[in-house]
Amino acid sequence: MAKKKEMSRLANLTKGFFKENPIFVFLLGMCPALAVTSTMETGLGMGVLVILVLTMSNTVISLIKDLIPAQIKIPAFIVIIATFVTIIEMLTQAFAPALYEALGIFLPLIVVNCLILGRAEAFASKNGPLNSAIDGIGMGLGFTMALMLIGFTREVLATGAVGYGVYLPLGIEGSFINIDSYILAMDVFIGPAGGFIVIGLWLAVFQAFSNRNKRIKADTRKRWIEEKKREAAERKRQKAMKEAGETS
């Protein structure tokens, strides 16, 4: 039986961006993707918190995976995740109160984010601490990228600008892009309906890229097979010619 090829650390880190993006590919963690992406900054804030929780929980679960009996794996994972979420929540409330206010109920709800528990069960409980940490960072970055893309799109379409420093303790406050907001002013993109529309659009974009990649791969394979067939036919023809010469 062939041994499964191990993924490189770089591939492990980057897989969450496109190939296994939690939101645009696996459709995991859709609740915050809708709820806290009315602005790019809140999306970024939620993403950073998820990276922290995911990385820490993955690492700890990976470290103690062999100590946890199979019967209590899920409750043990949830307790560990809930602990980190509670700690992150307290730290956010203390050091980034505006972000805490903006994320509201969705901050404690990270506990039940499918992405966190999914990576704990699918990856951290089967891999070493380093790879699990890298997986947490990579998937978290992919999740963050997706939230920021959705937030960016919604904010621009609704207001014509993208703000910064409002929720995160950046020390400065302002906005960039600044299209005349009266031209756009599509308030629908601030609300849940706009969230669904934007997520749908981005899913279509990712699906289109994915289909294109598959098509390219299929074409490449097809060309490779034809080349192999052509090479085989050539070899067969030369062999036949050789046998005919010997006979004559």
Partner: peptide, 25 residues
């Protein structure tokens, strides 16, 4: 025992962070 251990460590960690952040909050 494992559940007790995980619960205790979690509780202790949360208590410690709470002690740190409560006055700031």
């Amino acid at each position: 025992f494992v559940l007790l251990l995980i619960g205790s460590i979690s509780g202790g960690a949360i208590y410690g962070v709470n002690e740190l952040t409560a006055p700031i909050i």
